[in-house]
Simulated assay, not measured.
Amino acid sequence: MRDPVTDFEYPAAWTAACRSPALLEDVRRGLAVLTASGSVLRRGFTTGTTAAAACKAAVLSLTFDTVSEVKVTLPCGITVTVPVDGYRGRASCWKDAGDYPSDVTAGLEFVAMAVPSLSGGVQFVPGEGIGSFARDTPRHRQGTAAIGEQALECILRSIDEAVEEAELCGTTVILTVPRGPEVAQKTLNPRVGIHGGISVLGTTGFVEPWDDHMTEGVLERVGRAAGRAVLTTGRLGLRYSRLLFPEREAILVGNNLAEALRVAGEDTVICGLPGLVLKFINPDVLDGTGCATVEELSATVLWKGIACRELAAFRALHPGVRVVIVDRGGRIIAESP
């Protein structure tokens, strides 16, 4: 059985040990993950998925009055049904974190207001509670809403689907997160230059229950792949790790690089985007740079010198571990000497 989200092939022993066979269908559909102990952990929905569901419900409720659920096609290609509360152009959706215990946005309400557009076309307006960038970054201009590319595509696609289903000429949708500014203080947003609210994100559309799944399953997989593992931090890192190191087994370990490296030992590759990788190597790497994020640092003249220094120091401590840092386009921007 293969996970359609991560492409991970579950060992037969895990399936045999499953304590809740009825839930294996959710695992096959990507709605849950199976762990080595046989437990099934439910994936949650990202802020991007929640926002898309609220927007779609608001538009549909212009025609159908009451809307209690909507179908959303996630960035990973899986279509899910999300509970909503939509009535006459206004809809709410509450973020479902699944079995991820540390999600500070769990239960957060997203509210969308939709009005018909007589002139046609679709307009999406990020409103109160959605953060914006306090200054220019390599990918965002100051003042733009903190909405990830995949999340925005999901939102716009969902609105377009609703316009077609509701047989409207067009619509304007305003999305707000009433408790966004309050909850954002519990996230990294203030430290990375995003103010006024939360970020709307979602590379796959799902929130992974990594806290438990990492402990029970992925570390065992890292151990089995010792000597031929590529440890990576996210979905883009996983994609590029497979392309750059086809002879090795690429394993997504998220924020758990330290634990995974202890299991993998030497002759290991770490490959990923600059943020998590350099922060893992040196949590204080941004001190004195004037940059709010490692990604911002990577676009400055300081990058080459700092990256070379940090990778050399890490290689001295871990001579058998190679580090390769890639940008979002898959280009190698730093690697171990």
Rank of each mutant, 00 (worst) to 15 (best):
L236M: 08
E259V: 01
V323L: 09
A13H: 13
D99S: 12
A53Q: 11
R331D: 14
R328M: 15
R191T: 02
F64C: 00
G77E: 15
A250W: 14
G121I: 02
V263P: 05
P181L: 04
D212T: 06
A312D: 12
I174R: 14
L243E: 15
A292R: 07
C154P: 04
D212A: 12
G48E: 14
S61N: 11
L219P: 04
E109D: 05
D96T: 02
S20K: 10
R262H: 07
V324F: 01
R315A: 01
F206V: 05
A316M: 06
Y100K: 06
I306Q: 06
C291E: 15
A166P: 03
A334V: 01
R315E: 04
D85P: 00
V183N: 08
T215N: 14
L188G: 00
L236Q: 04
K56F: 08
T233H: 10
N255S: 15
A114Y: 10
E167P: 00
P246W: 15
A13P: 00
H195Q: 13
E153A: 06
E153V: 00
T105N: 11
L317V: 05
V111G: 02
P181T: 03
G330I: 04
V173D: 02
A112P: 02
V27L: 09
V40D: 03
L231M: 08
Y100D: 14
P11W: 15
A134I: 00
Y240W: 13
P190F: 12
W303T: 00
R331K: 11
V192F: 02
I78A: 08
R221E: 08
L273A: 01
G197S: 11
P126A: 13
S199R: 01
N189V: 00
V70K: 01
D26P: 01
K95I: 03
A17P: 00
Y10A: 14
G120N: 02
L278F: 15
V301H: 12
G89M: 07
R43D: 13
E161F: 02
T233F: 08
A316P: 03
P181K: 07
G180L: 03
A97K: 04
A226D: 03
N282F: 10
L278D: 07
G197E: 12
V163D: 10
L34E: 07
V324T: 07
E208F: 12
L244N: 13
G121W: 07
V321E: 14
L311S: 07
A58M: 04
D327M: 13
F133V: 02
H195K: 10
G288V: 02
S132L: 08
I325Q: 14
S92R: 11
T6K: 05
L273C: 07
A307N: 01
A226C: 06
Y100C: 07
E216K: 15
A299K: 09
I194M: 09
W303C: 06
T144K: 09
D212Q: 04
C76Q: 09
A260T: 01
G288M: 10
S39Y: 14
E149K: 09
L261F: 03
T47N: 05
W94C: 09
G237Y: 11
T137V: 00
Q123G: 07
H318F: 13
I198M: 09
C271V: 02
Q123S: 14
A13M: 08
P101D: 11
T105L: 13
